[in-house]
Amino acid sequence: MTPEGGRDRGPKVVALGGGHGLYATLSALRTLHEQGKVSEITAVVTVADNGGSSGRLRQDYGVLPPGDLRMALAALCGTDEWGQTWAEVFQHRFAGDGDLQGHALGNLLIVGLWERLGSHVQALEWAGRLLGAKGRVLPMACSPLDIVAQVRESVDAEAVEVRGQVQVAKAPGEIVRLSLDPADPDPCVEALDAIRDADLVLLGPGSWYTSVLPHLLVDDVRTALQETTARRGVLLNLVPQAGETTGFTPQDHLRVLHEHAPGLVVDHVLADRHSVSDVPELSRAVAWLGGELVMADLRVGEDPHHDHDLLVTALEHLVAPPRTGLGAGRASA
């Protein structure tokens, strides 16, 4: 295919997640797109947030919580003056004590577009055009969801139900089961099509139980992930998240992923070499899922956040054609 068709400029990549983890992935993919190494980027975003500005707008207007969608759009903004200015404006939060206090301007704009156009997908496309986004942002479902978790504070304790993304993220104890309400939400058809048409699908990093795993609980999304011919990659977190994954090893993240999608084969698992204490054990866990472990430097010092330039370099290896470019960063399974 010609460069105008896009396929000679790199693969089509779909990234699933939410919040700051998805923001980091999309920012790195945007750089690879600008370098001509990725042809298309699609973000598929969780829609279960019930806190802050998103929670207020969801309650007042019955809309999808816009916060994670807003962050994904901002991550895809270009590095030119137009893109960076709009990214900052989109992320701006109102101060003061009035009704707008705490609301992000981008959240309000997205909700306004939804009301005006009557379509979540069209509204996000128009927002992306305004921002000059280097990719597409789609919700994983067409209606707002609640995350419901069974949580126990100790091994001998009886599990109790915790409802809501914010509440689950802060609940003390071990999450033993996760579900969605409604249990069978209507998926975004465009998101399913993007997953099936992708060359590479990435899951994570991010809040494991409230941003990453919810995608696997939507039946049609999970099926699309299982049936796609795309390579599937999992990006592990740098550190356990207080509350959700306290005490988790990298292997534990993969264990609960398998528990929620036992039929999902993973081709690559990307991990920070300084965050893994037992590489052979993690390699065995990755091989059990059908893939290979890719080790890379993903952060500077003890910073718990992914370094943009290092993540770009690591993802450049993953977006390369299969069996190429992994080099010394590959750990044998």
Results as ranks from 00 to 15, higher is better:
residue 77 C to V: 10
residue 108 L to N: 09
residue 98 G to V: 14
residue 116 R to T: 14
residue 82 W to C: 06
residue 109 L to S: 06
residue 77 C to Y: 11
residue 79 T to A: 09
residue 86 W to P: 05
residue 100 L to S: 00
residue 76 L to Q: 05
residue 75 A to M: 02
residue 114 W to Y: 14
residue 77 C to P: 08
residue 107 N to P: 04
residue 78 G to K: 09
residue 99 D to W: 14
residue 108 L to W: 10
residue 99 D to P: 07
residue 115 E to K: 15
residue 96 G to N: 01
residue 96 G to F: 01
residue 78 G to T: 09
residue 94 F to Y: 15
residue 76 L to W: 08
residue 94 F to E: 06
residue 81 E to H: 12
residue 82 W to L: 14
residue 77 C to D: 08
residue 108 L to D: 01
residue 75 A to P: 08
residue 74 A to M: 00
residue 107 N to K: 09
residue 90 F to T: 14
residue 78 G to M: 12
residue 92 H to D: 06
residue 74 A to Q: 00
residue 103 H to C: 02
residue 91 Q to H: 14
residue 76 L to P: 04
residue 102 G to W: 00
residue 107 N to A: 06
residue 80 D to H: 05
residue 103 H to L: 05
residue 106 G to A: 08
residue 105 L to F: 15
residue 78 G to P: 09
residue 99 D to M: 14
residue 86 W to R: 13
residue 111 V to D: 04
residue 107 N to W: 06
residue 112 G to K: 13
residue 104 A to R: 05
residue 82 W to G: 05
residue 100 L to K: 02
residue 75 A to D: 10
residue 92 H to L: 07
residue 111 V to E: 07
residue 91 Q to K: 15
residue 102 G to Q: 04
residue 86 W to S: 05
residue 86 W to T: 11
residue 109 L to K: 04
residue 95 A to C: 03
residue 104 A to M: 02
residue 110 I to T: 07
residue 88 E to P: 00
residue 81 E to S: 13
residue 113 L to M: 14
residue 84 Q to N: 09
residue 92 H to V: 02
residue 106 G to P: 01
residue 93 R to S: 10
residue 110 I to H: 08
residue 114 W to M: 14
residue 87 A to C: 15
residue 78 G to R: 09
residue 100 L to C: 00
residue 97 D to F: 07
residue 82 W to H: 15
residue 110 I to R: 03
residue 114 W to L: 11
residue 116 R to W: 13
residue 96 G to S: 00
residue 112 G to L: 07
residue 75 A to K: 03
residue 116 R to L: 14
residue 112 G to S: 15
residue 111 V to W: 10
residue 106 G to Y: 07
residue 97 D to V: 12
residue 80 D to Q: 06
residue 96 G to I: 04
